[in-house]
Amino acid sequence: MSHTTENQSPRAAVVTGATTGIGRATALELARRGWRVYAVGRRAERLDALAAQAREEAVPGEVVPAPLDVTDEAAVAGLVARVDTDGGIDTLVNIAGGARGTDFVGAGSREDWEWMYRANVLGTLAMCQAFLPGLRAHGEGTVLNLTSTAAVTAYEGGAGYNAAKMGQHGLTAALRLEEAEHNVRVIEVLPGMVHTEEFSLMRLGGDQSAADAVYAGVEKPLTAEDVAEVCVHAVELPHHVNLDQIVIRPVAQAAQHKVIRR
């Protein structure tokens, strides 16, 4: 079934971080529900594979590969022009981001901290600034930012990621206040422990055994598809319904500091 609004049919979204994990799962699920999805990420071959999967499944929507780095403002501007030519979007889903390192503050890598700030905060900023004019003009625009439970609870060894996600969390809260008068809905999804292909592996410098240990003994950590389902549900609700903040964790993770391992 094709999902429509009063102002636009079919619905269309830009989804960042679509090469892997939650971003990929969200882009595919939206296409399965009839959306045109501009799938954004740095690895063109992965986006092409995602679009091919959507075609093979004969989904009612469409995946349009859009290879770029969200911190590259010129590339983002090019995407805006392409999207506008196609008729615009009503939804921006910012999932691109990530973590690097587990250093304590006293030994933290400046390079890792700067990368996390660029990826999580400045990338989100660039995408919002680029697409807000079109979302306002649409009349019923939506921005969904994926942050993390790390955005609201600090933990040892997480300071760099905490700082980046708390920055993105603050950006999102301010954006909601600023854009309400333009009827732009702003949603924040804050996942806890999600077992994806690359998140912990990238954070831990490619050490697969260390990445596997993060989830060892945890019964049913969240999957990318679990979080994607929540994101899609939030943006498909009637536009006047705003899920301001959605915290999603596995049952085994009762809190940031309490994880049940069996």
Rank of each mutant, 00 (worst) to 15 (best):
L144F: 10
R249M: 10
E114G: 02
V194L: 08
L28K: 15
V247Q: 07
F104D: 14
V235W: 03
I95H: 03
P133Q: 00
G23F: 02
Y215S: 01
A52T: 13
L175D: 11
D103N: 07
G206A: 04
E62Q: 09
E111N: 03
V83Q: 01
A180R: 15
T142L: 08
V259W: 10
E188Y: 13
A173E: 08
A126Y: 09
A150W: 10
R185G: 04
V83K: 00
V218R: 08
T20Y: 15
L30N: 07
A164Y: 03
R203H: 04
D90L: 11
A96M: 02
Y117N: 02
R118G: 05
D244F: 01
A180F: 05
D84G: 01
V105F: 14
F199I: 11
S200E: 15
R118F: 04
A213W: 12
G217W: 08
Y117L: 06
P60S: 04
E197F: 15
N183T: 07
V105T: 12
I187H: 06
K220R: 15
G192T: 06
V83E: 00
M1Y: 07
E225T: 14
L132V: 14
Y38E: 01
L122M: 02
A44E: 13
G87K: 03
E45I: 11
V186T: 10
R33K: 14
R11T: 06
D212W: 00
R100T: 07
P10L: 09
A27E: 00
S148D: 08
A107M: 05
V247M: 06
M116T: 07
V63M: 11
G78D: 00
L79E: 09
R33A: 00
N242T: 14
I248D: 06
H233F: 06
A163V: 06
V40P: 00
P10M: 09
G21Y: 05
S109R: 11
